[in-house]
Amino acid sequence: MSQTPSNYFLPDPSPWPIVAVASVFSILFGAALAVNGLFPGGIFIVLGFALFSYLLFSWFGDVVRENMAGLYNERVDSSFRQGMIWFITSEVFFFLTFFGALWYLRNVSADWLTGKGYLAGTHEVLYNQFFSVWPRTGPGLKEEFTPMKAWGVPAFNTIVLLTSGATITWAHWGLKAENRKLLIRGLIATIFLGLLFVTLQAWEYQEAYQQLNLTLKSGVYGSTFYILTGFHGMHVTVGAIMLAAILGRSFKGHFTPENHFAFEAVAWYWHFVDVVWLGLFIFVYML
């Protein structure tokens, strides 16, 4: 690494932020059209994603070049690291929202619908035939479904993610010990396990729809099940893409035991996603 500059690095004007905004806008605009069954929606979404991927390459390319050119001093590095902490904080609250919704629906509103708590009158007057134990739909839905079994795919998926946590840790130690082979092998294994997880998850969804009649329309159980696992699956996918980028940079030998914020950030993110899955496994599948 070249000598550390004393001044805080200030980037020149950059086109990427506004391109990022344009691509996200395109995706969301397309989504708004698509959910209403309007045809051009899909085009906007595809265009948006294409632009977004192009932009990721360009923007992160700039960042990597600046980093390799030694333009970042300790303080800039700190800014990235602290920025990540606060980003993760917002992510945590995102997940807490959905977990909170699950808690509320399973306890508070469930009590009222079945005749307990402050709005117990709801049960007496409106649904005196409705009794329920989780997992359930609601008093107005008649279709039956089978809940997802914890000890099938979900348990296996837990093992997959746990193992991937171990492999990313190997890679991490490999990096620290300047063992590039271990770093690359660990990363490849992690990406493979991540993809395996997503594939199994997709297969599980298909099972749920076809065999168990467990759909988005299966009342609150279906709703919370899909939103929590889906939101998590999205994070795994994003994590795997980021891991792939890190793998590419590892091949190029970008990381040294001193300079590897990108690696550590992505690795930590992967652990975070893994821990969220443990929470999911307990609260969605088991309890």
Binding site: D77, F261, E264, W268
Partner: peptide
């Protein structure tokens, strides 16, 4: 992660993980 700045001798992140 935010404190150690990827210092070569500091492996606290990897250890904690």
């Amino acid at each position: 992660l935010s404190k150690d700045h990827g210092d070569k001798d500091k492996t606290r992140v990897a250890r904690a993980l």
